[in-house]
Amino acid sequence: MRTLIFRTVAPYIASLMLLFSIFVLLRGHNDPGGGFIGGLIGASGLAIYGLACGVATVRRAIRVHPMSIAGIGLILAALAGILSLPAGVPFMTGLWVYPTILGSEAALSTPMLFDIGVYCVVMGAITSIALCLEEYDGD
C-alpha cells in the first residue's frame, strides 16, 4: 500500500482533510456538519496519513497521544455544561456572547464549545483506534 505516489500525496490529503474537518465542525450549527462528522473526517485523514507514512510519523506529527485529545474534548464538553453554573442557570443551558473580533461580529456559545468537545473526543478516540490497529503487528 505504501506506493511512492500514495506516500507523497498522503500528507497533503491528510492536512486538507483536517482543515476540512474543522470547517465542517464550525459550520455545523447552521449547515450540514457538526462535531461528529468533523471528528470522523479528521480521524480518517490521520488514518490515511498513518497508512501511507507509518504510525510513528503520525504520532510525531500530532505530538500528543490521540486519547489525550479525546480526554481534552470530554473536559471541554463537560465544561460547556458547567459554565452555566456561574451564570446561575440550569446545567447545560446554552449561553451566547457576541464579541467583535477584527471588526466582525462572532457568535460564541457554549453549544459551540460543546461541539468542539464532541469533535475532539470523536477524532481522538477514532484516531487512537485506527492507529492502534495499524501499528499492531500481532505475531
Partner: peptide, 20 residues
C-alpha cells in the same frame, strides 16, 4: 441515529479487537 452510528462504530472496533 447520528450519535448511534458513531457509537456502534466504536463498539464494532472494540469487538473486533476483542475477537482478534
Amino acid at each position: 441515529i447520528l450519535t448511534a452510528i458513531v457509537i456502534s462504530f466504536s463498539f464494532f472496533a472494540f469487538l473486533l479487537v476483542l475477537g482478534y
